[in-house]
Amino acid sequence: MHIPPYHKKATWQRFFVGTFVGAVIAYCLFIYMHGTMYGELLEENRDLKANVSELKNQNDALLEDNKNLDEQSQESIKVETIEITIANEDELPDSLIIHDMEELIKHEINHIVGKNVSIISESDSLLKATIEDRDYTVDDFTYQFSVDTLVIHQTVKITVNADIAT
């Protein structure tokens, strides 16, 4: 079988050259489009990796913070300070002794500092009785206190009324 010599005719030569040039242009266009698309995908991939890395770091930080909060919530709250307020201080004969009275009450219940708030709140009536059942002597006067309010937290706040004991 014999192949006809089409490559010698000018029309067929133009056709083959046009096909070859078209194939080269199509290949170049394909490479350009593929490269552009691949570059955009690489850029998007890097952005997504950066976001994933940032979110992992944020998640680790939040998990660590959650763990610390869990540990803190499991730790019991302890009494740190005691604040005494005398509600009727203007009715007392001498306003200079108020500080001494507050110090005497603080000295009487100072043992609760450092104790768990839950333990102190369970025995609040005992704390009230400790303050109310004792007579406090300041400058030749004896005072008795009655507890008005008692707030138990990290700072125990006690409001008392002072009366001169008879």
Score class of each variant (00 low, 15 high):
112 I>S: 07
112 I>P: 12
112 I>N: 07
113 V>Q: 03
114 G>E: 05
115 K>M: 02
116 N>H: 10
116 N>C: 02
117 V>Y: 00
117 V>A: 01
118 S>V: 06
118 S>T: 13
118 S>A: 07
120 I>N: 00
121 S>N: 11
122 E>T: 14
123 S>T: 02
124 D>Q: 13
125 S>L: 03
125 S>R: 11
126 L>D: 09
126 L>T: 06
126 L>F: 14
127 L>H: 09
127 L>K: 05
128 K>I: 01
129 A>D: 05
130 T>L: 03
130 T>P: 08
131 I>V: 03
131 I>K: 13
132 E>Q: 15
134 R>A: 12
134 R>H: 15
135 D>H: 14
136 Y>N: 05
136 Y>D: 02
137 T>Y: 10
137 T>D: 03
138 V>E: 04
139 D>M: 04
139 D>C: 04
139 D>N: 08
139 D>E: 08
140 D>F: 15
141 F>M: 04
141 F>H: 04
141 F>A: 09
141 F>S: 05
141 F>Y: 08
142 T>R: 04
143 Y>L: 02
143 Y>P: 07
143 Y>V: 05
145 F>Q: 01
146 S>H: 15
146 S>E: 06
147 V>N: 10
148 D>C: 11
148 D>R: 10
149 T>Y: 13
149 T>A: 12
149 T>N: 10
150 L>Q: 06
150 L>T: 02
151 V>P: 11
151 V>L: 12
151 V>Y: 12
152 I>F: 01
152 I>D: 00
152 I>S: 00
152 I>R: 00
153 H>N: 11
154 Q>C: 05
154 Q>D: 09
154 Q>Y: 13
155 T>Y: 08
155 T>W: 08
156 V>I: 06
157 K>S: 12
158 I>N: 06
160 V>E: 06
160 V>L: 07
